[in-house]
Design a protein around this nucleic acid. Structure first.
Lengths: 95, 95
DNA sequence: ATCATATATAGAGATTTGTCAATATGTTTT
DNA sequence: AAAACATATTGACAAATCTCTATATATGAT
């Protein structure tokens, strides 16, 4: 079971538009930070900032290979978020 | 299909600790704003602010009855968030 | 060793978000 | 109509977040 803060932190990964775009880019598989960077209209340090939030939250996993960082969506992280939502649904009433 | 901003807005509902606590309180069913207020250590305007975010995002639905507002978790809203996560999983690789 | 490249970190400014006190709106009771 | 109560809105301040420039670190190539 997650704490209130842990839960909020996981979902923080999804509440910035640039991070949603990054996830969109990762949908078709692992990508290098440099590829993400050229696809987005932000500076390199800003990308680095967002990748840190995504990785720390467990939603994305990073793999270092030489001087490149390869990022991909982490099924395990997504499932953690999913199970919280299921938990809410399991007892929520309405519609 | 949701826009980037719509997606981010839905998840914004979950990224504040007080809102997670509110959802926790709503787990056992509909509650009046006054009940939420006495269970939480925030002022009435602050609660009102958070309820607006939760309702606007579709995660919670509100029902007015006389002078009371009754809030409950909206299954439909939760499902929208769930389906975005499923979408990420459907193509994400890794673990 | 030096240089070039990829990424991370530090620090500063701008924007957004959360919080409160004060006040407004809407509803019920007297 | 006035008073009492529940909730919403406004406006101000504080804290958190996003973004940038400058710089540091790490790796590979010359």
């Amino acid at each position: 079971m997650l704490t209130t803060k842990e839960t909020a932190d996981i979902f923080k990964a999804f509440c910035d538009e640039n991070r949603i775009r990054i996830l969109q880019l990762l949908l078709d598989g692992e990508k290098c930070a440099c590829k993400l960077l050229e696809a987005m209209n932000i500076t390199q340090p800003t990308l680095s900032h967002h990748m840190k939030i995504l990785v720390d939250s467990g939603i994305v996993s990073g793999r270092k290979e030489g001087k490149w960082m390869h990022y991909s969506i982490s099924a395990e992280g997504i499932r953690k978020a999913q199970s919280y939502l299921s938990y809410l649904l399991s007892r929520g009433k309405d519609v």
